[in-house]
């Protein structure tokens, strides 16, 4: 405590009097400490520490020295951004995801782009652009029909072994009942998503194709890519559940067949 004299100031307001007591010592110390912390805080983050974009890059494991010191959020630019610059860290991050389907999507974007956008895309993805101009995965000569944006599904996938044990099928049913049913209904009859009981398939009815579709999805039509949400085991379990437990059953309401009959 500061000096507590309890001396009254020679004055009153509507009967209210005030002591002339000193400020409590611990209060003054507290104020001083918070000011010191505030002063230290600024260089702690802005000079010695990580600002939020660097902090994020480190969390994602994409941080490199050269991406530092570019200020808030400038280290990121959209692939289409006007200033077109991309830091090595973001570049590396993009390359990680530049697997075939994504490259393919990029080339489709190039096919649709106007000259201005195409130039930006070329600057951002030179390798993909080279691939594109040399008639890569999807040749630009034939404008890609929008409805077949899922060529990734045609990519050959190693044969998968059907799970038939009850434990696996039960696990698959659990995934179905918590995730899939919102669009395909509990009994697989289909509503927003296609019917899963009729053995007609838009993207192929073999187990490998089903697994692949669950993994990468059909974003244009609303099928979610599940590989970031479900483990590989779960995906296999639910795909097996579909083939063993749903196909061939009679749902309460069934959506009209789409795609081709699978006769595997």
């Amino acid at each position: 405590m500061g000096k507590v004299t309890n001396e009254l100031i020679d004055h009153d307001f509507d009967g209210i009097q005030e002591y002339d007591n000193d400020l409590p010592g611990w209060w003054k110390a507290l104020f001083l400490i918070t000011v010191i912390i505030a002063i230290i805080y600024v260089p702690y983050y802005h000079i010695f520490g990580d600002l939020q974009d660097v902090e994020y890059q480190k969390e994602m494991g994409t941080y490199t020295e050269s991406s530092e010191g570019r200020g808030s959020f400038t280290s990121y630019s959209s692939p289409y951004a006007s200033d077109g610059e991309m830091t090595p860290a973001i570049r590396a991050q993009m390359e990680q995801v530049l697997d075939a389907p994504f490259q393919d999507q990029l080339m489709r974007a190039m096919a649709k782009a106007d000259a201005d956008q195409l130039a930006k895309l070329e600057a951002a993805f030179p390798e993909v652009y080279a691939n594109y101009t040399s008639g890569g995965v999807s040749a630009p000569a034939a404008p890609a029909p929008v409805e077949t944006e899922d060529t990734s599904t045609a990519a050959p996938v190693a044969a998968e072994e059907l799970l038939t044990d009850e434990a696996s099928l039960a696990a698959g049913k659990k995934v179905w009942d918590t995730q899939c049913f919102t669009c395909h209904l509990n009994d697989g009859g289909g509503s927003i998503g296609p019917n899963m009981t009729d053995n007609y398939w838009i993207h192929g009815g073999d187990l490998a194709s089903i697994i692949n579709i669950i993994k990468v999805g059909v974003p244009a039509k609303g099928m979610i890519p599940w590989e970031t949400t479900l483990t590989p085991d779960q995906i296999k379990q639910v795909a097996s559940f579909i083939q063993v437990k749903l196909v061939g059953t009679t749902p309460a309401t069934s959506k009209a067949p789409q795609g081709e009959l699978y006769e595997g």
Binding site: F31, T34, V35, I37, A38, Y41, Q52
Partner: peptide
């Protein structure tokens, strides 16, 4: 931007004693 966030934080810390 980070600088604005930082101002928000440091002035909040300094507010403890005046509030109390």
């Amino acid at each position: 931007p980070d600088w604005a966030q930082t101002l928000g934080t440091v002035f909040s810390i300094m507010l403890i004693a005046p509030s109390w």
